[in-house]
Design a protein around this nucleic acid. Sequence first.
DNA 1: CGAATATGTTTTAAGCCTAAAATGATATTT
DNA 2: AAATATCATTTTAGGCTTAAAACATATTCG
Lengths: 164, 164
Amino acid sequence: MILDSETKAVELPEDHGNELRLWLRLLTCTTLIEGEVRSRLRERFDVTLPRFDLMAQLDKVPDGMTLSDVSKRMMVSNGNVTGLVERLVVSGHLDRRTSDTDRRVQVIRLTKTGRAEFRKMAAEHETWIADIFSDLTPKDVRELMRLLAKTKGSAQKSAQKRNL
Amino acid sequence: MILDSETKAVELPEDHGNELRLWLRLLTCTTLIEGEVRSRLRERFDVTLPRFDLMAQLDKVPDGMTLSDVSKRMMVSNGNVTGLVERLVVSGHLDRRTSDTDRRVQVIRLTKTGRAEFRKMAAEHETWIADIFSDLTPKDVRELMRLLAKTKGSAQKSAQKRNL
DNA sequence: CGAATATGTTTTAAGCCTAAAATGATATTT
DNA sequence: AAATATCATTTTAGGCTTAAAACATATTCG
């Protein structure tokens, strides 16, 4: 333990360069892949990534979700979802209705054509992802999954600590 | 090899679920950490992440960079940089001048106060990142670095293939 | 030289995104 | 029952982001 002249613990500037480099690499990877997926969605289907992501959430459930649920699952703000949903309702992909039991709540679900279009996009999307990760061996994939799970846990812990 | 009735190779729908799950986990991790960094930058220094990132690029060089250089390094569009720089010039963090040798080119650099402010933010930022990744062992960090490098290579190859 | 082409930046139009305030509805307390 | 609190959503104001078109300057080549 390092003590200063008044016998209190002091912080030495430690080296966290490796963690910083790791973070930058993580960010670079994600940005690269995300940009690639955006381009392809736009080119092939003229759809944006946020819209695709929203439809992906709704495709997982048969009977729709509330806006708050979507907002939590997508990790974006409520106001953001409002706008996104509005555009997807206009384009005919989503159906929006007020809950019967609680008139504060809006329930949204994929329309028939919305679901069909999404499934087509999702199938192709999956092949893009496979191609993007194709240099990784199955073992690499498993190992990355494990390390990213650990990273996620660590980050959540850190975020929680801050919000006490 | 699977052949169809006319003796041409056909595609079977393969399972790429693991790659897809990996991509979603990668995205979740990055979104989580990025959100956390955004909040802290905003709270502590009232600065946005894009501005911080731009200043980080400029801090690495003593004599400034052109807008195109910044745009390439940050992996964002030219127009985006124009607006970002404009705001940072107004706030006094950046100095912008037309190149002497090529009047198309704008050279930007950190002002004295801009650099000082950035250094203060960067030092604290590094400790946040260290905390966010603190559950990872040095070995985990090394291993993640390696696997992400491989991922980046794979993604770049895939992107390049598409842009032939 | 001068026209064609290339390069660097800005503008434009549209969409995404957030935090914070506002709105409207339900639940709880007094 | 009225006041208060909580909850779900929308609105607002501002910033970020992109692709494409427009603009300005440099370079190349006939």
